[in-house]
Amino acid sequence: MADIEPTSAPAFTCGLDATLRIIAGKWKPLIVYFLAQGPCRYGELRRAVRGVSDKMLIQQLKELEAEGIVRRTDHKEVPPRVDYTLTPLGHSLAEALAPLCVWGSDNMAAVARVLAERETWSR
């Protein structure tokens, strides 16, 4: 019988690589941001993360739960009530994202100008 090798952890090129594998995509950082404000029900998250489809929000929440960032609590009630919260690992990620939020707030006008200019390139 052949020896089965244990699964090894993915190789990361640096800490940023590890972080980006968790928060990759448009919606995960926003989900983490809004959950950092406190527990949310699904409908609250859907309203907060404007523009996300139900399918994508559900998929992203499931991935974040599988990655240990989000905890889903089903209260086993009728009508159904489910809350999402950050785990301790999720809170530490939210703290790491906080400087990016500050940078975005401080540079919102400049970013808006750059994005508006970029729109003219494709015309």
Rank of each mutant, 00 (worst) to 15 (best):
W27N: 14
K28P: 02
R81F: 12
L64F: 12
Y33Q: 13
D54G: 10
V32M: 05
G51W: 08
K28C: 03
D74P: 12
E44Q: 15
K28R: 15
R81Q: 10
Y33C: 02
P29H: 04
R72H: 11
F34P: 00
P80M: 07
Q60V: 08
V78H: 08
R46L: 15
A66D: 11
Q60C: 15
R41T: 14
A36F: 06
R47W: 08
F34T: 05
Y42M: 01
E77A: 12
K28Q: 04
G51K: 00
V32D: 02
G68L: 09
R71I: 09
Y33A: 13
P29I: 05
D54I: 04
M56C: 02
Q59S: 08
G38A: 00
E65D: 12
E44H: 03
G68A: 07
P29V: 04
A48Y: 11
E65K: 14
L45K: 09
V49S: 00
K62P: 02
E65L: 03
R50D: 01
L57K: 08
H75D: 06
K28Y: 01
K28H: 00
E67H: 10
R41A: 12
Y42W: 11
P39Y: 02
Y42E: 00
R47S: 15
A48R: 15
T73N: 11
F34Q: 14
P29Y: 00
G43W: 00
E65G: 08
L30C: 01
V32Q: 09
G43R: 10
Q60P: 02
R71Y: 03
G68T: 05
G51E: 00
P29M: 05
G25H: 00
T73M: 10
E67C: 09
A66M: 12
C40H: 15
R47G: 09
G51L: 01
T73G: 08
Q60F: 01
V82K: 12
L64T: 06
C40W: 06
D74A: 11
R81K: 15
K76H: 15
I31P: 07
G51F: 04
P80V: 09
A24V: 07
L30I: 05
R41P: 05
L61F: 02
A24E: 04
P39W: 00
K26F: 09
V78C: 05
V49D: 00
E67L: 15
G38M: 02
W27L: 12
A36T: 01
P79N: 07
I69F: 08
W27D: 10
I69D: 08
D74Q: 07
W27A: 11
A24K: 15
Y42Q: 08
R41L: 04
P79R: 13
R41G: 14
Q59C: 07
F34K: 09
